[in-house]
Design a protein around this nucleic acid. Structure first.
Lengths: 130, 130
DNA sequence: TAAATTTTTAGTATTATACTAAAAATATAT
DNA sequence: ATATATTTTTAGTATAATACTAAAAATTTA
């Protein structure tokens, strides 16, 4: 599953949506600070990759999309823990984690998780395993 | 200094050249398994970024290019050490490190280096500090 | 100097990114 | 119900990165 940084960011916005209702294209557009047509094209790619379903601007994440999303969340929080542990502040840790959380092999992330002592939460207090 | 993955790979080939003589475009082309015109365009970009000097296919790395190259080498080997420590084999560690060694902030890498106990060498036995 | 190799130009193509303008569709408010 | 507002979609444009082939130009080697 190769994702570009933008695709990753878009999937995160969609997956982070706590609402029961589908998220709108216009909401994603506002959150990502990108024009509607740009998001329209992004959504087409995420659809092609089987990560979302989309109908007339209403976006629902697929179960595959949820899997990839939660993998990225897990990788992100593991990396945040590591970066925080070695002396970076929360914001910096988060920022650096965002650059690479979608690129690394899952096996690596699980081994990293074990190595840092299976923490319960990330530096923001969010749970690592949901 | 933003580099693409390909630019990173090309700079590594150029910087890894131990020969006193400049490396040829055709040699880079062979090593990277890319056509000569593709490398030609890559070199133009590295030139624009001040990383190399190039004249009629003869390529020399600049002092700035050397700096970036050695930063990436250092990041790469630190990451390899970490990945090896958490239980990945040499090859896997190297492969994963290559994905991200050019993306992370230098401060982070230095803190990681301290965290892993300032090792002398990477899993391949190559020195971390030259 | 001829042959071989290498660099460079020219042209094509794809993917990702991102915009504006405007048409079409849908939703909201009166 | 209809006018207004919002949203989605299409169309068109643009740039950067990637990567190729074919062929011309330049350089190197034999």
């Amino acid at each position: 599953m190769y994702l570009t940084k933008r695709e990753r960011d878009c999937l995160m916005v969609i997956g982070d949506n706590k609402n029961d209702f589908p998220i709108r294209l216009s909401d994603i557009s506002k959150k990502m600070k990108l024009s509607a047509p740009t998001v329209y094209n992004l959504l087409k790619r995420l659809k092609d990759k089987g990560l979302i379903n989309e109908n007339r601007g209403l976006v629902i994440i697929t179960s595959f999309g949820k899997e990839i999303h939660s993998n990225i969340i897990f990788a992100h929080r593991c990396l945040e823990c590591l970066f925080n542990e070695i002396g970076l502040d929360k914001k910096f840790s988060c920022n650096e984690a965002s650059k690479i959380d979608y690129l690394l092999n899952n096996e690596l992330i699980i081994k990293l998780y074990n190595h840092i002592g299976r923490p319960k939460t990330c530096p923001h207090g969010k749970p690592l395993v949901v």
